[in-house]
Each structure stands twice: as C-alpha cells, then as structure tokens.
Design a protein around this nucleic acid. Structure first.
Length: 407
DNA sequence: TCTGGGGTCCTAGGACCC
DNA sequence: TCTGGGGTCCTAGGACCC
C-alpha cells in the first residue's frame, strides 16, 4: 500500500520563534516584518547568519554567511541573538500539536517533522489534513509552517521546500516531472556544494538531467552517493518515518575560541570544560563511550582530528579526559595557532547492554563513578562554573567563556 | 571586525589475519 | 622475475544535513 507522508517545516524557524516569543512578552515590533536576521556573536568569532526574515532574503542574505557580509548587502540590518531554550520550547509546542494528528512523528531536526499518516488517511483527505495543520499551527502557535504532501519522505521534504512561507504543496508521483525535474540540481536533498560542480561538468544541471542520466555511470563515479542521488532525482525513497525515540550515536562539544591559542596547557583546560559537558550528557543518556575523538582547527582553517578506541567502554570523565588529552598532545605541534577545539565520543552503547565488566569493578572505579554523579548533580544545580576538578582551578578567561552557556 | 555547533554516514588506506 | 586474495578492524578526513 502506498504511504501517506507529511513533512512539516517551520518557516525561518529561529527568527519566527524569537519573534513570537518577543510578541508574547510585550514587545510590539514583529521582527519578522523587519530586514532582520538571527546571528551568532561576532565578539566570540561566531558571527554568522543562522536565520533570516523574508525581507532580509530579498536583499540576497543567505544562511551561513558572515554578519559582516550580510551588513554589506543591507546597511541597516537588524541582528538578533537567539536562545536555544526558546527554540526547544516552541519546537515542543509544534510537536505536541502534531501529536493530535498521529503519533508516528519523526523529529528530523529542531524545526522539521515527518508524519506517517498511512494508517489514518486516504489520499484525498491527506491534502485537507495538511491544510488543517498549516492553519492550526498559525492560529494556535503564532508562527507559520510549510507542509509537504507526498507518498514518501524525500518527496514530502522536497515539496515543503517549494515556495515559502506558509504554504502547502503536494508532490505525488505524477507531479515529479513538472514540479521537481525543472529545478536546479542544487535543490535536491543530499546534493551539496561539493557535488554540484562535479555534476555540472557532466552537463547535469537540473534534477531532471540527473534523473535521466545513466545510473551505472553515477554509481561508478560517486559510489553509494551516486545511487542515492539518482534515486532521489527519480523520487525513489523507501525509508521509514522513525517515530520511536533513538539514542544518539555520538555526542560532541566544540568551541571556536575567542582568540587563537598556541599554548597546550590552555587548550587542555578548555578540553576539560568541553569533556565535562559531553560526559554529563553521556551519563544522562545512560550510555557508555568506546571511542574518543579530538578535533582541532587552526587559524588558517585547517582541520585535524585524532581518535582512539578505549580498552573498555566508560562514562568516566577522568578516563575520557585522559584519552582526550593524549590525542590532543599527539596532534598538537609547537607553534600551531588553534581556532577551534572539540571533543566527540563515539560508538556509544547503553549501560545495561554492557556485559558486567569483571575487571572494572574495582574500588577505584566505583569511587570515580560516584564522583562523576555528584558533580553532575552540582553542575546541574549551580551551572558548570561552580565546581570543577583540580585542573580548572587555575582556569582563566577562556574556560569561563566555554562554561558560560553550559547550563 | 570574515568563516557556528550539533549530528549522521561514507570512503580510503593501512594493519592484520587466514 | 612477477610479487594471491578476501575479510575485518581501525583511523583520518570529508560529504551532507539543520
């Protein structure tokens, strides 16, 4: 049986949500009506555009560009700073509203959901439901969404991306040629800026060009990705709506430093702060890590990463930090100026899944675990600045900056 | 006062084993 | 004198997404 899928996408999510939040808290100006963006913090060297208003878009401002560049395009651009707590709150409101339609909802990102309506609907009523959702979100939550209507996730997602904002679009099989094939190749999901020029060299400029290209040649040239993009161009996607909550496969924390650092000891202190936050999240999820990865970015934007497997899975801050420090020292060379440092833990397994470790039940490791738990509680209550291990006692400005947003 | 941070998945190449 | 192969595991790096 054919599946009935909706894709719900919040228009200019971060900006819309901040606008609604401001209006609900007494602000009279609707920042969506301005030439405005949500931006990072230039003093922290993270000054990029995260979301833009419709009017800002008309000036040619694009997501991801620097605020400096955006201001060049519009001199009196209004820049606002977002807040993840607000985003999460409105994301949850949307999710709860959608639950009135089905419980088969995949939260694809903070501002996108897939709904599997197959169990409930025949095709003709699907479009009506999409329109109903579109209107209900606007009326009850105060922001607008695009809704894509199709028979699989890929086409639903492509449909919700057509024209914005506040629109409902269908993309059924018989509409693929007229609605999707004329679009430039860059519009296809999973074709990014590295692939576009390669396809252009092959005279593939539209999604239709790709759909009608020899599949075997694409597979030979691009491997699995070649197969995927040919299928997507032809509207083929059999993936399921993953509505059951899944544990993360990796947990990471990285920061662009307020200034380039060439002192390994300072880097180690930052690494400690980052590690504490990562391991805290790890323990909250009741997971254990097997692989530790440390990433560095130099002032010239060269990226390096080293990773290593642990002898046995752990959630211990101390063990993970030790390995992370080792990796940092392995990678760092005298005179390197570091712009970004990050830690990622990988190959996560659930705590109960782990065979009762026969070796790892020593008094010492029990003590460590207890210490970690205590610190988690204190950190959650007072913020990450309150207590740290001995390593941060001589902490300086940088570590305080890292920790500032932790809570 | 240019270029975020959080993820997932894939690939190439080396080590090692049979 | 050319110099097996397949498989697995591991690491580094990179593509893509929001």
């Amino acid at each position: 049986m054919e599946r009935q899928i909706l894709h719900v996408d919040v228009n200019n999510a971060f900006l819309s949500w901040l606008a609604v939040y401001k209006l609900q808290n007494g602000e009279e100006i609707d920042i969506r009506e301005q030439v405005s963006v949500i931006g990072g913090d230039e003093t922290k060297r993270s000054g990029i555009v995260l979301a833009k208003s419709t009017k800002a878009k008309q000036f040619g401002i694009i997501t991801g560009e620097t605020l400096y560049s955006a201001r060049q395009k519009c001199k009196n651009l209004q820049v606002y700073h977002g807040n993840f707590k607000i985003y999460k709150e409105y994301s949850n409101k949307l999710y709860n509203l959608l639950l009135q339609y089905t419980d088969k909802i995949e939260r694809f990102s903070i501002d996108e959901c897939f709904l599997d309506m197959t169990d409930y609907l025949m095709k003709d009523t699907l479009l009506n439901k999409a329109k109903e959702i579109n209107a209900k979100v606007k009326k009850e939550l105060g922001f607008t969404v695009n809704v894509g209507v199709a028979n699989n996730k890929l086409l639903a997602k492509m449909a919700s991306d057509f024209t914005k904002p506040d629109k409902v679009h269908t993309l059924f099989k018989e509409e693929i040629q007229t609605k999707m094939w004329k679009l430039p190749i860059s519009e296809l999901f999973m074709i990014g800026k590295k692939t576009v020029p390669k396809l252009y060299n092959m005279k593939i400029k539209t999604i239709g060009d790709l759909a009608n290209y020899d599949k075997q040649i694409l597979v030979k040239k691009f491997g699995k990705h070649g197969k995927l993009m040919w299928e997507y161009a032809n509207g083929i996607d059999n993936s399921e709506v993953k509505y059951l909550e899944e544990k993360p496969k990796s947990i990471g924390n990285s920061i662009t430093l307020p200034m380039d650092i060439n002192d390994i000891q300072q880097l180690e202190e930052v690494l400690l702060a980052l590690t504490q936050q990562v391991t805290n999240r790890l323990r909250k999820q009741e997971l254990l890590a097997n692989v530790i990865n440390v990433q560095l970015r130099t002032k010239n934007f060269e990226n390096f990463s080293h990773q290593a497997k642990l002898d046995s899975p752990t959630s211990s801050t101390k063990e993970i930090l030790n390995k992370a420090k080792f990796l940092l020292n392995e990678m760092y060379e005298e005179g390197m100026f570091i712009r970004l440092i990050g830690i990622k833990i990988d190959n996560l397994i659930s705590r109960n899944e782990m065979q009762i470790s026969l070796f790892d039940n020593t008094e010492n490791s029990k003590k460590q675990e207890k210490l970690d738990k205590t610190m988690d509680l204190i950190n959650e209550k007072y913020g990450y600045n309150f207590i740290t291990r001995a390593g941060t006692l001589n902490s300086d400005k940088i570590v305080r900056i890292v920790n500032k947003d932790a809570k």
